[in-house]
């Protein structure tokens, strides 16, 4: 596939792939490698990193292993990032697609509703939703999805709108294919690329959102997330700065990797298909 080729040709994309791969692997394998979970108090508190090989990244205020916490945090962040982004992309594409495809009053109605969501500051709305429905993984994912879908809808609408006028779409409609079929099999594959790029970047946003929610105390208290670690480490930052720094650093690495990959995918937009014959 041309996307893979493009990715593997860029050194920064390769690095990003490796990093992200490590994060994903850590998240997936966490319960297998550390079945006890991240909450267990395993040693004395405030062990510095790299001093005790049994706990390579040290321990926190209650003696919990920071490395284990980071790995479980990866799991949480990825879970939330992926699920909420999927939900937002699915919903946003559906709304935007319908608006762009049908145009007219349907378009106006859907876009005004979308704008309603967009005018509310997204983080404030997310906080509100999570606070109302009690913080839990589900409510956080739902809240993030709810505040993230409008840009997807706008993009999908623009893409569907422009595709709608293309001749091959008109030809498909003429040949008797139903609207749904045309939208699904003709238009959608052609608008997937920009949507995928957007989705990649939205995963970053979702991870940041979740971290911010955990930081203000609205995270799911049953799971360890990077945002929670930053918040917990804040209290003892004067004495053990690594408790806050390392989770923050993990967030940064993950998001930078995702951004690079998103860029690379965007660049790899195969002009082959769209290129006119050279004269």
């Amino acid at each position: 596939m041309p996307i893979w080729k493009s990715l593997l040709s860029r050194p920064d994309a390769i690095l990003a792939l490796i990093l992200l791969g490590a994060v994903v692997l850590a998240g997936v394998l966490a319960p297998l490698i550390f079945p006890g979970g991240p909450w267990r108090m395993v040693a004395r508190p405030f062990i510095a990193p790299f001093t005790d090989m049994g706990h390579p990244l040290g321990t926190d205020a209650l003696g919990r292993d920071l490395a284990v916490a980071l790995i479980y945090g990866a799991r949480t962040s990825l879970e939330i990032g992926l699920v909420s982004t999927c939900a937002a992309v699915l919903f946003g594409t559906a709304i935007g697609g319908i608006a762009g495809f049908f145009g007219g009053r349907v378009d106006s109605l859907l876009m005004r509703s979308t704008e309603m969501f967009q005018t509310v500051p997204s983080f404030a709305l997310a906080i509100l939703l999570v606070a109302i429905y009690s913080p839990s993984l589900l409510s956080i994912m739902a809240a993030i999805a709810v505040v993230s879908w409008p840009p997807v809808a706008r993009l999908a609408r623009a893409e569907f709108l422009s595709m709608r006028r293309r001749e091959f779409v008109q030809a498909a409609l003429l040949s008797g294919q139903s609207n749904l079929r045309v939208a699904w099999s003709q238009i959608l594959p052609n608008v997937l690329s920009p949507l995928i790029v957007m989705a990649a970047l939205m995963i970053s946003m979702a991870i940041l959102f979740e971290s911010a929610l955990s930081f203000v105390g609205l995270g799911d208290p049953q799971v360890v997330s990077w945002g929670y670690l930053i918040s917990a480490g804040r209290g003892v930052m004067a004495r053990s700065w690594w408790l806050t720094f390392l989770p923050g650093f993990s967030i940064m690495l993950t998001i930078v990797s995702i951004s690079i990959l998103g860029d690379a995918i965007g660049d790899s937009q195969d002009p082959h298909f769209e290129r006119k014959e050279t004269e």
């Binding site: 909450w39 267990r40 108090m41 205020a61 209650l62 009690s134 913080p135 105390g217 609205l218 208290p221 049953q222 917990a232 804040r234 209290g235 003892v236």
Partner: peptide, 26 residues
């Protein structure tokens, strides 16, 4: 305060060790 947050987390863990399932409700 963070001491109370840590206390709650400790309690959850300590009870888990003896077989009592407790979840935090923030």
């Amino acid at each position: 305060g963070s001491a109370w947050a840590r206390l709650a987390e400790y309690e959850v863990q300590a009870w888990k060790e003896v077989g009592i399932n407790v979840e935090l409700d923030n």
